[in-house]
Simulated scan of single mutants.
Amino acid sequence: MDLSSLVSGGAPGGANGGGAPGGLIKDTSTAEFMTDVIEASKTQPVLVDFWAPWCGPCKQLGPLLEKAVQEAKGAVKLVKMNIDEHPSIPQQMGVQSIPAVFAFVDGRPVDGFMGALPESQIKEFIARLAGPSAEEAELEDVLASAQAALDEGDVAGAAEIFAAVLQEDRTNLAAIGGLTRCLVASGELDRARQTLALTPPGKEGDAVIAGARAVLELATQTADVGDIQTLAAQLESDPNDHQARFDLALALNARGDREDAVNHLVEIIRRKRDWNDEAARKQLVQFFEAWGPVDPMTIEARRKLSSVLFS
């Protein structure tokens, strides 16, 4: 929607130019719309609140909207337009009921809502529009560096970073999951369980937490299986010893030989799919949770599993 031709020829309105400190909130007119909204949105997201003095829901929404914008600390600006005094812009935009809020970015409307929303939804709308704050972006970089360290085998370095994040925010899921993985890698299973217990109620199903829990459960299972050479010898003497093959798969995965671990579990499924209540298939699913859905080994193992299940 191009409003520049309409705005450039508009008549001056009655905007008072006032607003919150720092210019985050102000009234506008048809004549000032180009400057206050179109041009301003090229450097910062701008919300436009179309309202009228007689509108009850507008009086309910207005203070909540202003409060949310102020709390966003400069992430967005708010421009208010009285549609009774300045009807041409809302008509151009097809506004048929108020309150109506439009979000402008780079000179164009990109999102919006109508009606009086609760405060929580207003904050979510602004957060979605503004994107991550500088502080949030910095935190994401810190967590990414910790994950990179863990991927490269620097377990101690990764654990130190994850722990530092948790000191600032004990509910950070990425830090909880990351530190849990570090502690498992260090063999500190009890501390890993304590760390995983920091997960906030209702967040147990989050992918990061589910993956860390799967890693911990795998480590716990592996502690009870036998020596790889012993298990391999048992399997050589009896290829249908599914328990030995199953335990060998766990031991191989713990050693980092994920491909052979997958192959043994798939072989159990090929030989006797329903063995031990489909334990091999369920174990593969646990591997997938621990490795993550986009891990190349997860993708390859899913392909192998499908080829057996649907052959």
Rank of each mutant, 00 (worst) to 15 (best):
R245V: 06
R258K: 09
L235N: 13
N263F: 11
L216C: 03
T199S: 07
V215D: 15
E236D: 11
Q221Y: 14
N263E: 14
A249M: 11
L218Q: 08
D238F: 03
A261R: 00
G205C: 09
A210E: 05
L231D: 05
T222S: 15
D224H: 15
V215H: 15
L218A: 07
A233N: 13
A210I: 12
L235C: 12
V262N: 12
P200E: 06
D241Y: 05
R193T: 00
D257E: 06
N240D: 15
L250W: 00
A223W: 02
A261V: 05
N263R: 10
A207G: 08
A244M: 01
A233Y: 10
Q229P: 06
G211W: 01
L248F: 00
G211E: 08
E236I: 13
G256E: 01
A219C: 04
Q194L: 10
Q234K: 10
R245D: 03
A223Q: 08
A207T: 01
L196I: 09
N240R: 10
S237C: 06
S237A: 15
A197V: 01
N240H: 14
N240S: 13
A210F: 06
E204I: 04
L252H: 01
T195I: 13
R213L: 11
A249Q: 04
A244Q: 03
A232N: 12
Q194N: 12
Q229G: 15
T220V: 07
D241S: 07
E204W: 00
Q221L: 15
P239A: 05
